[in-house]
């Protein structure tokens, strides 16, 4: 018995630091491996903290829905959302503002990939209609609320006449993240999948994809995706002009500074640019069409 309490005492000993009154809580949809996210947003928090002179804390969330809920509830101040989650979050949070997107985000795309062994007969194609070959295959999306890993792929599949119920087992899988989709298709657990093109390219470059096992089938047309969304009350909480200072800090991230260069590299971008809000109208309409926005 005593040993139990000893263990409990040891486990419960590390007390959390007391929170200061005003902390800028940043977060992101968990679209990649958690260790990568921790590294990236740890750096972002440090960088913003230094530039803005406020305490910045990265709050990891476990799924896309939780990020939207946290933002709506006001538990998160600045979130790196995908196209769909960003629209969902802004529809539910009056006053929320879009601060920036990456240079790549205005013309983003997804890729469809397949396991070479499982689908020997499937060759890379260029016409959207060929997506119909994926009928009756074991197919995995990324997260349920992912724009590049679910929403747009499902939209393009529907254009080719493939509904979610047409996949083997009567429904697609949801791997949870883009990295997981690659791993599951590579292993053969799923025969094919769809994911964020940028993650695909960067994993290829890092040599993390076994190209003898996975093959690229098709690149989708482009659509707008990821963006930074901030709460509308930051000026009130952190002082006049804070929101524009925050926006400038993001827009000014430059590859000349070592830490900023690291941030940009992990984001897979050369720089952040301003994001016109009206570009997400198309995402909203696809979201409504597929029932992800009501």
């Amino acid at each position: 018995m005593r040993s139990l309490f000893l263990v409990l005492a040891v486990l419960l000993a590390p007390l959390s630091p007391v929170l200061a009154a005003q902390v800028l809580r940043i977060s992101a949809i968990p679209d990649q491996n958690p260790e990568r996210l921790n590294r990236l947003y740890g750096l972002v928090a440090a960088e913003l903290g230094d530039q803005l002179g406020v305490q910045v804390r990265y709050v990891p969330v476990i799924d896309y829905t939780a990020a939207v809920t946290g933002f709506r509830r006001g538990d998160l101040d600045l979130v790196w959302f995908g196209g769909l989650t960003g629209v969902q979050a802004r529809l539910q949070t009056p006053g929320a503002v879009v601060l920036a997107q990456r240079d790549v985000d205005a013309r983003f795309l997804s890729v469809f990939i397949a396991n070479r062994q499982a689908l020997k007969d499937l060759k890379p194609f260029t016409s959207i209609d060929e997506l119909s070959q994926l009928k009756d295959k074991r197919f995995s999306f990324g997260s349920e609320s992912s724009t590049s890993g679910r929403l747009m792929p499902q939209f393009f599949l529907a254009k080719a006449g493939v509904e979610p119920k047409d996949f083997s087992g009567g429904r697609p899988g949801f791997s949870g993240s883009h990295d997981a989709t690659i791993a599951l298709v590579q292993s053969g657990a799923y025969e094919a999948g769809a994911l964020n093109e940028q993650v695909w390219e960067s994993r290829l470059k890092e040599g993390k994809v076994d190209t003898s096992k996975v093959v690229l089938l098709w690149r989708t047309p482009t659509y707008p995706d990821y963006h930074w969304v901030a709460q509308g009350n930051l000026n009130k909480r952190f002082g006049a002009g804070f929101t524009s200072k925050l926006q400038q800090a993001l827009l000014n991230l430059s590859p000349d500074q070592p830490r900023q260069a690291q941030v940009l590299e992990l984001f897979g971008a050369k720089k952040f640019i301003e994001a016109p809000v009206d570009q997400y109208a198309s995402i909203e309409s696809v979201g409504r069409q597929l029932g992800k926005i009501r």
Binding site: P34, I62, A180, A183, L184
Partner: peptide, 19 residues
């Protein structure tokens, strides 16, 4: 596992990323 705190989150994330 559903993100409400504690070790379940680590379990799910590392399982989903096949670590």
């Amino acid at each position: 596992v559903f993100g409400l705190g504690g070790i379940g989150a680590d379990l799910r994330l590392s399982l989903q990323s096949l670590q």
